[in-house]
Design a protein around this nucleic acid. Structure first.
Lengths: 255, 255
DNA sequence: TCACATTTGTCCGTATGTATC
DNA sequence: AGATACATACGGACAAATGTG
């Protein structure tokens, strides 16, 4: 008899079954999606059918579907002909999780805007390297729509956010699209809550965007960098300004 | 009578109540966490207690807790004195979601490594600007531990990943920590699956890391940039190499 | 317009596994 | 070892949503 306890074996022997049922189910379904056995647009069996197939209760299936839904693998709708359909909404899910991280860990607007500036400027290299004619067309189209909206006397809030999404797409590197989506999620949330977008601000932004597109089309990289920095700096000032006001209003400082 | 249907109003009128019960519950709990009413380390009431408090069924509470768990807000453990505890694991959740996006959308290793290089190099600016003595100490410590492991004739896989996490921390900007966590999740997953880390490779990496730390300590930025690029380029080659082999082995091309 | 079928959404009762005291 | 308190899991039931005839 010695002092070796079960505890000592925990690092050596892993349990045969440590996963919870619903985790097992969601992992199995994930695998099917990764394998290509379940393709985007394809309908999954109903909850009760899945329960029978996996030989588990419906509750476990539901919790598994909840996981897949939140991870951005499926969309679930009620009603006849409803149910779970394979569909990638991961991008927007990453955005909301990033936003959660911001709120939970109380990231400062200064950190956010400076990091954003650095990342987006470095992304511009890729735009110059990889953007095609169609990308530039999309950007031009975006600017045109933004101008039209401003001409109609309303701020082009959505369009000006979309511009950066399109810029990321023009980098032809999906990683930047993911990161940009995260950035824009924070931006959209913050702006919608704390700032009133004025027409004048919107107009300046659109003008800057238009100049950026021109610089890209004319392959003038240094000019584009300067313009993008100016654009992002303007956004920073608005954000940080309202963040300070907000902190004052709430009367609580950062931990 | 005109052709205006209910459908036309969907963009104008949002439903009074489109949320499902469990979404309501998880949102309410999230708010309590953001408000600071529920602090990290704090225990939530039991499932049945929450069900009574919110006046909903246990199943709705369970699905709400599943969401909070997956979003990285709580940890759930069974047994007496178990239950849901507020705890931020969002960083690792963002990592796994990022990894999911990679697998789902079949991002190429080329895109991943080039984007990573760009982001990490731009992050280096922040390291030079903000890193304190303690950050450099952490990096030095990491290199020392890696060297010790290699001296013991085993590859310093974990330590070499951790190096980049510490580098992000040294930037003193949490945004980079988040992005880095996402990058490392992909890296760890890929390496653990497809490549055998050789001692020789590990040694080269550690030597490079050591040189980077020295360059940072001596405030030699251009040198640090060159070294970091070299380090990341080495990682790229290993990854892309094994990615090609892997694609060949599986016998499936990218969609 | 209305009834119907299907599927998700929700609740309840109950049983089991698990960790702590 | 036994009692406990909790999550986990199952099955049944009904409500709500939604497409179809």
């Amino acid at each position: 008899m010695n002092a070796v306890t079960t505890e000592d074996y925990k690092s050596l022997i892993e349990p045969v079954r440590n996963k919870r049922t619903f985790e097992d189910v969601s992992d199995r379904l994930k695998e099917l999606i990764f394998n290509g056995a379940l393709k985007p647009g394809q309908q999954l069996p109903s909850e009760s059918a899945l329960a029978q197939l996996f030989q588990v209760g419906r509750q476990s299936v539901r919790e598994a579907l909840r996981i897949l839904e939140l991870s951005g693998f499926i969309r679930v709708r009620p009603g006849v002909k409803g149910g779970a359909v394979v569909e990638s909404t991961i991008l927007s899910k990453i955005g909301s999780l990033f936003l959660d991280a911001f709120k939970f860990d109380r990231v400062s607007m200064e950190d956010f805007t400076t990091a954003r500036r650095a990342i987006e400027v470095s992304m511009l290299d890729f735009v110059f390297k990889n953007a095609g004619r169609s990308d530039i067309e999309s950007l031009r189209d975006n600017v045109a729509r933004a101008k039209a909206r401003i001409a109609g006397n309303s701020p082009a809030f959505e369009e000006n956010i979309e511009f950066h999404r399109l810029l990321a797409k023009a980098s032809r590197n999906y990683v930047f699209s993911i990161v940009m989506e995260a950035i824009l999620a924070v931006l959209a949330d913050f702006k919608s809550k704390f700032t009133v977008v004025k027409i004048e601000q919107s107009r300046n932004v659109v003008d800057c965007h238009a100049a950026i597109v021109t610089a890209i089309a004319e392959k003038k990289k240094p000019k584009a960098v300067v313009l993008l920095k100016k654009d992002l700096m303007g956004a920073s000032e608005i954000l940080i300004g309202s963040a300070h006001k907000e902190r004052k209003r709430i009367g609580r400082t950062r931990a």
